[in-house]
Design a protein around this nucleic acid. Structure first.
Lengths: 219, 219
DNA sequence: GGACATTTTTAGACTTGCCTAAATATTATT
DNA sequence: AATAATATTTAGGCAAGTCTAAAAATGTCC
């Protein structure tokens, strides 16, 4: 239906619209490690196919059709990541590149069966929501760890904009997605945090905490 | 490392060498639904890369390097087929097309973890052997059902050159890979066979039986 | 508001992988 | 062995996707 390159562009535009509210030619090019002129070509092509609205010199947005396809790509990517971590035992910092390939495999039955096999997960191993078959996102009220209340129990549900280095740091401290912990203390001096959980705990700097999203986990 | 098209050609050549002992330009073209002239182009390219030996006007063979790569493709294809049937619940006549896509996903850790997850299977759901990481095939002594001994128990272990129609016929009669049965009778007139097993049985024409490979299953 | 910097598009070229048509080699037939 | 049929290669072309360089539009800064 769509080529690998078309799908990559659609996903990049979707990501930029989510992150920044707009998708310029240059930003798309940077995200895909390609050149602005190549992106212009592709935008014309995708506009002709009715997936993208291209306002020359003013970036691109997705049509309803484009957004729908972007969401199926996100769905496939996150379901494969869940499979790789939950079933094959990859660590969550290793899976992105492989999922990037798997998401382009085109088979509706495959993805629906995979979804069922994984128990219809609502969030992937990074804590990001998995769109359902119709593109609907599950909702969840999250709190930045920097603003979470001291003395209460919380659960780590997502890492925003996590570099590999950050993911490894978290892994090494035992801060995996799903971790339930008590926020024992916050230092006024530098905003660093002390976390404890049954059998362990760790300290986190404010820089790290700024990337972590939590939900209250009150017993 | 190699493009989708290069890998398709390598696999086609390997398949033809297995089935017919030689791979002519035309046979490769037919197998890939492409044209002989396109195949000639690709043979030159693969020869330059050291994967194929191309004797102009006399077909192609694989170099050691080419054969090694062909076997990793076969390994990937059959492991994915096993996953699709055993874990996702596909029927064995549905999986080929999807496995065809999955086998081109390139990640050594992925395939080794998948292999372990499936319990290092030695044969796929069609009963075909799965090469190990080093390209070694597991061995098995098989007997064509047409030559199997009447009155004894046998197990169906493979279907050779099975069309979708044949696979569906077998499925509808309950003749799945792994089926253990007693060969009750062979008609001299047309070679048709009568099979029975606990709770069932079926009749098969000689044409069908010619595609079935069995191993003795003596209690 | 004009000059400069940046972004974007256009123009033209290249590679990969495919095609058709024509030329050439091999194989089969009489 | 000559001719016919088939297979293979060569030659030339086309579409997709990418690139560089140049032109055009937009944004920024004094």
């Amino acid at each position: 239906m769509f080529s690998r390159s078309e799908e990559d562009h659609i996903k990049a535009i979707h990501g930029l619209l989510e992150d920044a509210g707009q998708a310029s030619t240059k930003d798309i090019a940077d995200r895909l490690s390609t050149r602005a002129s190549s992106v212009t070509d592709m935008l014309k092509k995708l506009a002709a196919k009715g997936l993208v609205r291209h306002a020359p010199y003013h970036g691109a947005t997705l049509t309803t059709k484009g957004r729908r396809h972007a969401l199926t790509l996100v769905r496939k990517h996150r379901l494969w990541e869940t499979f790789l971590v939950q079933r094959l035992g990859f660590t969550w910092d290793e899976v992105h590149e492989v999922a990037e390939q798997l998401e382009h495999v085109s088979s509706e039955p495959l993805i629906e069966r995979l979804d069922a096999y994984l128990g219809h997960p609502r969030f992937d191993p990074h804590g990001d929501p998995i769109p359902d078959r119709d593109g609907r996102m599950p909702e969840r009220v999250t709190v930045h760890l920097t603003e979470a209340q001291v003395g209460l129990r919380h659960q780590l549900v997502a890492v925003k904009d996590g570099s590999d280095a950050l993911l490894r740091l978290l892994d090494s401290k035992g801060m995996t997605i799903g971790r339930v912990f008590t926020l024992s203390a916050r230092q006024d001096f530098d905003g660093s945090l002390q976390l404890t959980w049954r059998g362990g705990g760790c300290d986190l700097s404010a820089q790290v905490a700024a990337h972590l999203l939590t939900v209250p986990d009150n017993p």
